[in-house]
Amino acid sequence: MISVHEAISRFRRDVTLSTLLKAALGCGVGAVLALHFVSLGKTIDPSLLLMGLGAVWLTLWYRTMKGSRLAAQSSTLIASGNLEQAEAQIEQSLRAFSMSRSVKSMGLLNLALVRLAQKRWPDTAMLCREVLAAKKGTSEHVNKSGRLMLADSLLEMGDLRGAHEALAGLYNHRLTLSEALSLLRVQTEYLARVGAWEQMIQGAVTKVALAEIMPMPNGARVQAMLALAAKRTGRAEWANWLRRRVELLVDVQELATQRPLLWELWEK
């Protein structure tokens, strides 16, 4: 099992190395093309040199493609809940050299996702911070997912300020539906922690519609949080309706044990 520190140091090393390699190859190609126009080109065949550089480039990109495939496969394994196998794949992809920064970021992000599922919050936060720090070459998807996971793990660690900062960076982005669902879940938890009940219940119709398409138990947890907000703001009809829905969807005992704040909904 690869440690978070090792994964980060490998990520940094590979990013530096690939930047240097790309620059060297680029300069090499420029120099070889220039050889066509200068007298030195008479002694060295520039075409053969260019072919040699092309071969080196293709070999490196073949390795990168392999790494990219491993990263894609590990995403599928995480989605199916096969965390051990996913971690082994991620380790393999992080240990292999890759020319692409985005492939490496993806590997790191997938490791963060595994650590999040394992409830290892500090590790998740550290990995997400590293991914977000490397702004150049990071895709928008990686950036948004990193922020969502960072906010999620910081909330679990009780760092409300950090969670707020991570969430704030998301409001400037256009989100996909699955990202919007994750944002709603994390945002609801955050607002409940800071006691912003009125803000929580705003746009309840849309929020409930989105919670309905979330996987369980997250969908039920969001509805329970909204029920609590409705109760705290004196909307008894909403509170009762949402609470009863939650009772049909999940085990209330389990839900309230995870979020003790929610016991209030079932107090006599």
Partner: peptide, 9 residues
């Protein structure tokens, strides 16, 4: 060589 270089580019 000049045109070859251009073509390659």
């Amino acid at each position: 060589r000049f045109f070859g270089g251009l073509a390659m580019l």
